[in-house]
Design a protein around this nucleic acid. Sequence first.
DNA 1: TTGTAGGCGTTATCAG
DNA 2: CTGATAACGCCTACAA
Lengths: 343, 343
Amino acid sequence: MSTMMDVAKLAGVSTATVSRFINSPDTVREATREKINRAMKICNYKYNALARGFATKKSNTIGLIIPTISNPVFADSTQGVQDCADKRKMQVILGNSYYRYEQEEKLVKTLREKQVDGLIITTTNLKGNVLKILLEENFPFILLFSTVKRGPLSAVGVDNYRGGYLATEHLITLGHKRIGMIAGSFAITDRSYHRWHGYRQSLKNYGIPYDKEILVQTEYSLAGGRDAVKKLLALKKPPTAVFCSNDYLALGAMKGAREMGLQLPDDLSIVGFDDMQTASYVIPALTTIQQPAYKMGEIAAELLFQRMESAAKPVQKMLESTLIIRESTTIPPGRGNHAAHNK
Amino acid sequence: MSTMMDVAKLAGVSTATVSRFINSPDTVREATREKINRAMKICNYKYNALARGFATKKSNTIGLIIPTISNPVFADSTQGVQDCADKRKMQVILGNSYYRYEQEEKLVKTLREKQVDGLIITTTNLKGNVLKILLEENFPFILLFSTVKRGPLSAVGVDNYRGGYLATEHLITLGHKRIGMIAGSFAITDRSYHRWHGYRQSLKNYGIPYDKEILVQTEYSLAGGRDAVKKLLALKKPPTAVFCSNDYLALGAMKGAREMGLQLPDDLSIVGFDDMQTASYVIPALTTIQQPAYKMGEIAAELLFQRMESAAKPVQKMLESTLIIRESTTIPPGRGNHAAHNK
DNA sequence: TTGTAGGCGTTATCAG
DNA sequence: CTGATAACGCCTACAA
């Protein structure tokens, strides 16, 4: 593999000139440029960005840590950060934490060793040491899908509490009195926890007693949702509606309910969270809380690049999450539902 | 940021020893190890993997180029390569080509400049110069979601032709005579093209004339599938079944058909391709051709690492793709369908 | 506009 | 088991 040295010799110039030619062509004379160009062709020169990074102490690479790329919401946000990085001619190294803190810890270590210029993290543990150290050492990073609204950490997210509130309120407005919740394990994601808070508050505001019997925490998966709904439906007093803390859980719940012979949405109303692409293509189309995942990724990257350029004060961007009413929610059963003829 | 030099001085040893301590601790005396350890703590030493890569000419990084991470199938395969890379303590830089060849070209250039040790590519143009050059220059790379079965390129994929054949045969076996196809644009993905070939061959083998009227090429998206199915349904002689070249298209088609007032699957049978996670959770659950995406990613990474260690002869791994029959396919309408009471 | 030369943090070779 | 020292490929003053 040929180097600048080879090119320089062949072109009869110094390596400094070759370097200039690459980084700011207009500072080198036309004739020289041509010589260099020719020389590069001849020895099939390939620029070594790693060597450059070594010399400049900038890798032009950022790290992105998410729980798992197989969740479409994280995939969308990843796309957002990638597109934004691409514009800045930056690359992104991806890491999956699988909702495990030690893995997250390991990832930031490895990525920092790789000299990434900054980090975007969808963290699994807001209180952990990882973020604290990053902050202390003044390393540029942005939280994504974050729940923090103030303080020293820069972050982008949505108001999960409000999302949970809206989802529940929608169900209450339809007439439901017994509303269950299927939540991602609180130990693993505080987003789920915040959504649950919104749920509780909504119940409270409308004078519906909270019943911890109809909350089930589970893993964030289709199967998790399916099993959870079956558990709820097996209760003596099963809920007539459930709020699921993400769309996977909701689709799983639809499946589970159906397997138990229920008609949807008539026998059970379901609302999700995320609005992943397929949510509106499912039958019945899923009522859900929409999160602008792609946009959030874009903004996180944008914020990170700003932060990398100059250490401004921390900012938190909370984006709007909105309730999207579709077909998976309706009035409670036995209330003269227009769709009651189905039974 | 402190360097090995600092640690060495503090510990009263040479940088060489520090380096040894890091890379093969057992070659340095216990007492020395402790000194170094202490020194590292004191100056909060952080290893610089980039400098290492510079010295060793190995970045311990691979590049992964896919069309788009928002397609769950590619997300799954990405997870597969990442998990495999993780085991080898390798990082992966992700790039989206968006099915655009120039983008793919640009990506391999950038990634090579970044000195990735190898590349995994889900290519958009098998015949393009990119792969040819990679091959000529003997750069390690593996094709993923590949259609190639022989030749100089190493690759992993499934038999798309066979998948298309199976899907169509299933429909024929159910009694369908008029079977349309909604395909991803052939110009963009030869996988789609191969699936179409399987479709044609199946038709032929069962003596059903091919009608190009009921093939529509579109973009790989939910909306694409929806629009396409509407086009087909508007024909004088609409199909009673459609084979969609991926699951997104199939879900889109379900939506479109439903919007036109059809009952599924009774009025229209639909089969997809991929078996993405949500496919079995949709209602009616999607009949589809399953591709082991995660597995394929894992194998591709495995193959790449082998290739990086020693330039063995090229291999092509074709994995099994199987027909998964679920609820979205049934006998043609007007044939005494058991579900006919729905109308 | 171009050249000279030192430096970036690690590894690797060769002595000791 | 440890130390000295020359790479590795590029950038960047500083000088010319």
